[in-house]
Simulated scan of single mutants.
Amino acid sequence: MRLDDARVARLATVDENGQPHVVPVTFAARDDTIVIAVDHKPKSTRDLKRLRNIRANPQVSLLVDEYSEDWSRLWWIRVDGTARITESTEALAWLVGKYPQYQATPPAGPFILITVTRRSAWSSA
């Protein structure tokens, strides 16, 4: 499995007090850049904890995994990197191309761009 093909990941951030925060996200990856959008799905606020955490500490991890009762099919990929928040829609096409749901209602942002600094992976295969 490749990172590009995965449909959902978990984004891990850390706040200014060192408290971890993990949320599921949709994403698109190209080379050493990953884009995540704050999209139109209902949220209690646009001032999301993940965004506040990135402003306080831009070091993040993204985890993609596959679980199966057949443990010979297990795998995971983790990328670590430096995140920045942008209003630029430069990578919006990556998300729209990957998720049909975004074709009718593209995310307005903001966007999280992660520059990958480290990759690690494991597979039982």
Rank of each mutant, 00 (worst) to 15 (best):
S88M: 06
V79L: 02
R30G: 08
V60C: 11
T82P: 07
A56K: 10
T26V: 10
D32L: 04
T13M: 08
L113G: 01
K43E: 13
R118T: 06
R73H: 14
S72I: 04
D47F: 12
P106I: 03
K41C: 08
Q103K: 15
E90H: 13
F111C: 01
W94M: 03
S124Y: 08
T89H: 14
K43I: 09
R52Q: 14
S124V: 05
T117P: 05
Q101C: 09
V8Y: 03
L3R: 01
P20E: 03
S72T: 15
T105H: 14
V38C: 07
A121H: 11
L51V: 05
S88R: 12
H40E: 13
I36L: 04
P42D: 12
A56E: 13
D39R: 12
K49V: 13
Y102G: 09
W122P: 00
D31H: 04
N17S: 14
D32W: 01
Y102C: 11
W75R: 15
G18N: 09
D39L: 13
S120L: 12
L74P: 09
D47T: 13
D70G: 09
L95Y: 06
P106C: 03
W75D: 10
A9Y: 02
A6L: 00
L51H: 05
D31Y: 02
H40S: 13
H40R: 13
V23W: 05
L95R: 05
P106E: 04
D5L: 01
R7H: 00
P106K: 06
I77F: 07
A91N: 14
E66W: 12
Y99E: 09
T115R: 13
W71Y: 15
V116K: 00
P100K: 07
L11I: 12
D4M: 01
V14K: 06
A29Q: 02
N17Q: 14
D39I: 14
I114T: 04
T13Y: 08
W76G: 10
G109T: 01
L63S: 04
A6P: 01
R2N: 04
R10W: 07
I54K: 06
A83Q: 03
V22C: 09
K43Y: 11
A83M: 03
L95C: 07
Y99T: 11
I54Q: 05
V14T: 15
